[in-house]
Nucleic acid binder design. Sequence first.
DNA 1: TCATTAAATTGTT
DNA 2: AACAATTTAATGA
Length: 240
Amino acid sequence: MSDELSLHRRRRKPTADELAGIPWLGLLQPGERLRAEEELLVGDARAGDYVCRVGRPVTYWFGVVEGLLKMNNDDADGGTMTFAGLPPGGWFGEGTAIKREPYRYNVLALRKSVVAGLPIDTFHWLLDHSLGFNRFVMNQLNERLGQFIAAREIDRLGSPDARVARSLAALFNPVLYPGVGQVLRITQQELAYLVGLSRQRVNEALASLQDLGVIRVEYGGLRVLDLPALRSSVLAPRAC
DNA sequence: TCATTAAATTGTT
DNA sequence: AACAATTTAATGA
């Protein structure tokens, strides 16, 4: 893909609406929250813009306020693994932020998005002072570990239908991505890019998932009807 | 607010 | 990959 590293992300203060979409703010004590809101910044990322890149020092802990990001893990150990997408409400980078290590992955915007950033010093201050924040981060780490394991399984799955189902289930994770809710705003083209299939194939897969009553296909998005079924994805394998 | 037009997204070959 | 059909967004009266 074209490697335009146009980091035109002018930062600004978050609006009230944007703050409302940040899940962990509600877990803080008033004093902690005041400081967090004071230091939070948001920036607009256009499609193709990198939010963070491998090797760069961690300066912020990032979260998706709006739009859709993609994390790909070009690590030395595992080769190129495309990790799941990052929908609204998702916060990432806490692992590297805690250790103050450089990023081990790239994150780029799949479409025009709004990204929030908490300065790493404030992040550490919250870790040192806020019980609610610690709970959130711990929960986050735990859930993400589960997602990494799931992502490896997805890569092994043969059936495209199953891969689409599992990837969707990951995006609908209510703990990691509380901003998503019942309806995920994603185009079939974006999902195709995320899963690594053609748009036609994704279209077919979505149709069969809809026939099973697991999701409903809507214009510009998908509605989940049965999340457990998406996860277990008891789909007829085409060939065993 | 409504009608018209353009753009985006989807379904199909 | 290309096309037609459908849905949404934008425009202006």
